[in-house]
Amino acid sequence: MAANFWTSSHSKLLLDQDEVDMVPSMDKEKGLTLEDFKLIKIHMTNYIWKLAQLIKVRQRVIATAVTYFRRVYTRKSMSEYDPRLLAPTCLYLASKAEESTVQARLIVFYIKKHSTDEKYRFEVKDILEMEMKLLEALDYYLIVYHPYRSLAQLLQDAGMADLTHLSWGIVNDTYRMDLILIYAPFKIALACIYIATVLKEKDSTSWFEELRVDMNEIKNISMEILEFYDVYKQVIPDDRIIAALNRLTSKA
């Protein structure tokens, strides 16, 4: 959806970092730490990404699905909303909301193809049932704005089209964090451009100055992204994810 971000529900739903980093009390009782909480979200983002690549949907659909997924856990607990089911359901709903519908049975087919783990296996009826709960958890706000559109416009304006590939990739990586719930999409786009210019050693100071944005905020976002890269450089071992997910199913 184009139109204006500032009048949208998305802008009104932006949260603070601490609001996003709150482990739902029900999960906390089961011993889920903030680190576990983040790991599960990263893992499930990757899962959505993999499923989406198998199904071949547009980038926008993936981004919207991940946003839905992360938004749900600012309000609901993982013990109530099984992430292993919520992830494909978000992909399903996002595909509808972004006008490129994927059939539920196709998603189920690829889930089975992707994973042999019984705990990931769900049927069409599970997805449809979760879709209802998801819609309610989102309070039926389905429009999400993403950095991609502003990214393309900004790069064109700056005459740095050669950075498209790199900065686009960085934007993709930001969905492994909760940035989309916290900052306006164009600020995320600017932060990614900033990182890209630093990496490629391009001088962009004058262009950024002309934009009249709060450069401190952009730099802060960039720092967060770089920190994230630093912390999650290495592949997260599967057993950590499994341990975290098992905590959810155990009795408190």
């Binding site: 709903l93 909301a97 059939q103 449809l128 879709e131 819609l135 039926y140 389905l142």
Partner: peptide
């Protein structure tokens, strides 16, 4: 429509009316 869950027409309408 038990196969495709929440109708796309309703999704469109809700999405747009919320905006």
């Amino acid at each position: 429509n038990e196969r495709e869950g929440f109708p796309i027409t309703a999704i469109r309408e809700i999405k747009i009316l919320k905006k």
